[in-house]
């Protein structure tokens, strides 16, 4: 009985490991080809499959995505240039906005913002598909 249980839990962890690898392969490809969005796949991998708690999963996801973005940037740049003037202006906005967002998160819970954000994503996505 115990033996059986042990085998079951072992098999389970092997299945989980395989699932982690498969979903990670997908997340990596999405990050490379679409230039983002990997985090939204990697956080659920870390919480659902690896079993990290939410805060740790978010922190670990950033560390995981960083090398993916870095190699992607190198690949993009070797094929074409970057319109750095407008790009840097956007980047400056992102940095300032990122600090504001991180500070605001302590005061405004993201809970009620999330559904609005996801609906905007769907609307934007459908618009791009229809174009």
């Amino acid at each position: 009985m115990t033996m059986n249980k042990l085998q079951k839990s072992e098999r389970f962890s092997v299945v989980k490991k395989i699932l982690i690898i498969i979903t990670s392969l997908f997340a990596g490809f999405a990050t490379g080809v679409f230039g983002g969005g990997g985090g939204m796949i990697i956080v659920p991998i870390l919480t659902g499959l690896y079993g990290l708690q939410q805060t740790k999963a978010h922190a670990t996801a950033i560390a995981t995505i960083f090398p993916l973005c870095l190699v992607s940037v190198i690949f993009y740049l070797t094929h074409g240039g970057w319109e750095w003037k407008s790009g840097l202006v956007v980047t400056a906005g992102v940095v300032v906005g990122g600090i504001v967002g991180a500070l605001a998160m302590k005061k405004i819970p993201a809970k009620w913002l999330q559904p609005i954000f996801y609906i905007l994503m769907i609307v934007g996505g459908i618009k791009m598909l229809a174009q």
């Binding site: 230039g35 407008s86 202006v89 400056a92 906005g93 300032v96 906005g97 600090i99 998160m105």
Partner: peptide
């Protein structure tokens, strides 16, 4: 451009995946 970046940054800073909105 700055406004677009700010929006993406705030959402990203809140841990909701800002890039997915910044790009569109």
């Amino acid at each position: 451009y700055i406004i677009a970046g700010l929006i993406g940054g705030v959402i990203g800073g809140m841990g909701m995946g800002g890039g997915t909105l910044l790009i569109p």
